[in-house]
Simulated scan of single mutants.
Amino acid sequence: MTYNLLTVDAVSPEAMARALAGCLGIAVGDVDVADSEGDPDLRNWDAPVSCEYRAVRGDVAWSLDIHAQEHVAGQPPESDLAAGFAKAAVTTVLFPAEEAPPSAYWAVTPEGLLTRARLEPSDGEPSRYEVTAVEAPVPQLPRATVTRFAEIVREQRPDTPVARAFAVSVEKVRQAAPGLARPSLDDGTAGPVRTAKGNLVAWERGITQMESGWAPSGWYPACLYRERLECRDELAGIGARLPRDVAELLDEALEQLDGRFAAATEEDPSGSLRRELTGGSAERTPVGWWWRRRPNPRPWHGPDAVQPA
């Protein structure tokens, strides 16, 4: 298994070996630690665990490429290894997050605090790496802005079985009556069926995240919540543009999702949520009943809320 870690402090090779041995449950002598630009003839290529380190500039000091051979029994997830390494080496450690943005990282402190971090390279040469933002204060990164990461929430894609079932059913309808030239969800067109599918996926994702307590981030951007409601607006008006049997399938899917949405929200007869999300604009007043319900609490509010960067 391969691990990629960044350390804020310039940890010594001896400390790296001790920390990795403790994290992986092996002897210190079974860890080969070497400078990536060092003499390869001095390496122990048969070591169960190898760690190449190289110096980097900026808010991080070392980049570690760690490889544990298959016969090493204890191979924890990267997050657990990073936390154990941070504690043993007494330094904050960064490791890549799963989301798409290349700047998305996690930071874990020696005390065990785990938080999101945004790591960005400079434009000049040689590159310097700066931790520009974190979601919780990290003592070793005092210049980082404390903020929430809206782009990470957008990258989260929970499963959408209702939308998937709708797509499968529509395709079966098309295949059963090809002479009607019904649109296919897989033909790359931007027709009404494709639009309905995309909006249904977005609507289901928002509901699923609401039901989970906005996991895994624990919050939700107001702008993204508004977009989900606007997707429901689109679904309300698209039925007339669909073949009748496809429109019926869409109605069935919406009946399921709307019931879940209603169960996860409460009435908002004063329209406070609508005014908050739209800025009270009179240009386009939402009329769907979903605009007259609200999550409680609102996931972008709270005593410890910070504004997304």
Score class of each variant (00 low, 15 high):
residue 239 G to F: 08
residue 211 E to V: 09
residue 176 A to Y: 03
residue 193 V to P: 05
residue 235 L to W: 01
residue 177 A to M: 10
residue 209 Q to I: 15
residue 255 E to Y: 08
residue 213 G to H: 12
residue 214 W to H: 13
residue 232 R to H: 05
residue 185 L to D: 09
residue 181 A to Q: 12
residue 201 V to R: 07
residue 196 A to F: 03
residue 180 L to F: 12
residue 263 A to G: 07
residue 196 A to E: 03
residue 222 A to T: 00
residue 251 D to K: 07
residue 232 R to D: 02
residue 214 W to T: 04
residue 189 T to S: 14
residue 194 R to P: 04
residue 192 P to L: 06
residue 262 A to R: 12
residue 240 A to Y: 02
residue 258 D to K: 02
residue 174 R to M: 05
residue 236 A to I: 06
residue 240 A to W: 03
residue 239 G to R: 15
residue 219 W to N: 02
residue 213 G to D: 10
residue 176 A to K: 05
residue 226 R to I: 06
residue 225 Y to Q: 07
residue 196 A to I: 01
residue 211 E to H: 09
residue 254 L to T: 00
residue 176 A to E: 12
residue 229 L to F: 00
residue 221 P to V: 03
residue 186 D to C: 06
residue 232 R to I: 00
residue 265 T to K: 03
residue 172 K to G: 12
residue 177 A to K: 11
residue 248 E to S: 13
residue 209 Q to P: 15
residue 202 A to H: 11
residue 263 A to D: 13
residue 255 E to A: 13
residue 190 A to M: 09
residue 232 R to A: 05
residue 255 E to Q: 14
residue 221 P to H: 01
residue 236 A to L: 11
residue 183 P to V: 06
residue 256 Q to K: 15
residue 183 P to E: 11
residue 250 L to Q: 10
residue 182 R to V: 00
residue 200 L to I: 01
residue 184 S to D: 00
residue 218 G to L: 07
residue 212 S to V: 07
residue 229 L to H: 04
residue 266 E to S: 06
residue 211 E to C: 07
residue 245 D to W: 01
residue 180 L to Q: 11
residue 199 N to Y: 12
residue 237 G to P: 08
residue 241 R to M: 10
residue 176 A to D: 14
residue 266 E to C: 02
residue 214 W to I: 02
residue 259 G to R: 03
residue 252 E to F: 01
residue 178 P to C: 09
residue 224 L to R: 10
residue 261 F to V: 06
residue 184 S to P: 02
residue 210 M to Y: 07
residue 183 P to H: 04
residue 182 R to Q: 04
residue 235 L to A: 01
residue 228 R to M: 13
residue 210 M to W: 11
residue 211 E to K: 13
residue 186 D to S: 11
residue 212 S to A: 15
residue 215 A to E: 14
residue 171 E to W: 05
residue 263 A to S: 13
residue 227 E to H: 14
residue 188 G to V: 07
residue 187 D to E: 04
residue 259 G to W: 02
residue 203 W to K: 00
residue 262 A to F: 05
residue 266 E to V: 08
residue 240 A to R: 05
residue 255 E to L: 07
residue 253 A to E: 01
residue 257 L to N: 04
residue 210 M to T: 15
residue 238 I to L: 08
residue 214 W to F: 15
residue 256 Q to H: 14
residue 226 R to L: 14
residue 210 M to Q: 14
residue 257 L to V: 03
residue 242 L to C: 05
residue 241 R to Q: 12
residue 240 A to P: 01
residue 194 R to L: 04
residue 191 G to Q: 11
residue 202 A to C: 10
residue 232 R to S: 02
residue 252 E to C: 09
residue 233 D to F: 01
residue 227 E to K: 13
residue 246 V to P: 07
residue 178 P to H: 09
residue 212 S to Q: 08
residue 203 W to G: 00
residue 244 R to T: 10
residue 237 G to T: 06
residue 262 A to T: 07
residue 227 E to A: 14
residue 256 Q to I: 15
residue 220 Y to S: 08
residue 190 A to F: 12
residue 201 V to N: 06
residue 186 D to A: 10
residue 174 R to H: 05
residue 206 G to P: 06
residue 247 A to V: 02
residue 247 A to P: 03
residue 232 R to Q: 02
residue 258 D to E: 11
residue 190 A to L: 11
residue 208 T to E: 15
residue 198 G to Y: 09
residue 204 E to N: 09
residue 200 L to R: 00
residue 258 D to I: 05
residue 202 A to W: 13
residue 245 D to H: 09
residue 171 E to F: 07
residue 243 P to K: 03
residue 229 L to N: 02
residue 228 R to K: 11
residue 203 W to C: 00
residue 203 W to F: 04
